[in-house]
Amino acid sequence: MSDTEKIDIEYVAKLARIALSEEEKAKFSEQLGSILGYIEKLEELNTEGVEPTAHPHPMENVWQEDVVSSELSVEAALQNAPKQRQNMVVVPKVVE
């Protein structure tokens, strides 16, 4: 974690799919640098042999039986779509 002050903001923004302005990039780099600096505190904590916590109250085998009980009409499913045609969501041509 030693080089965390230099977070590769371009790469991370690309992964996160957010177009950041130059200003934002500069600002976030600096702020995240100080946040990560603070977070590095965790390094000093000895966690050898400690199990990670994924859920505060872990359970197992939470499922439902295979019975249809949930639905949404096409109209309701697409009522908020920014662009639709033939009951489908329109997106720019996706190159495969």
Partner: peptide
């Protein structure tokens, strides 16, 4: 989710919030 699964249905008819 317990939304119906299948093939050959009208577009976006086998959907729910999940």
């Amino acid at each position: 989710t317990r939304c119906k699964a299948g093939f050959g249905f009208e577009p976006n008819t086998l959907v729910d919030p999940v």
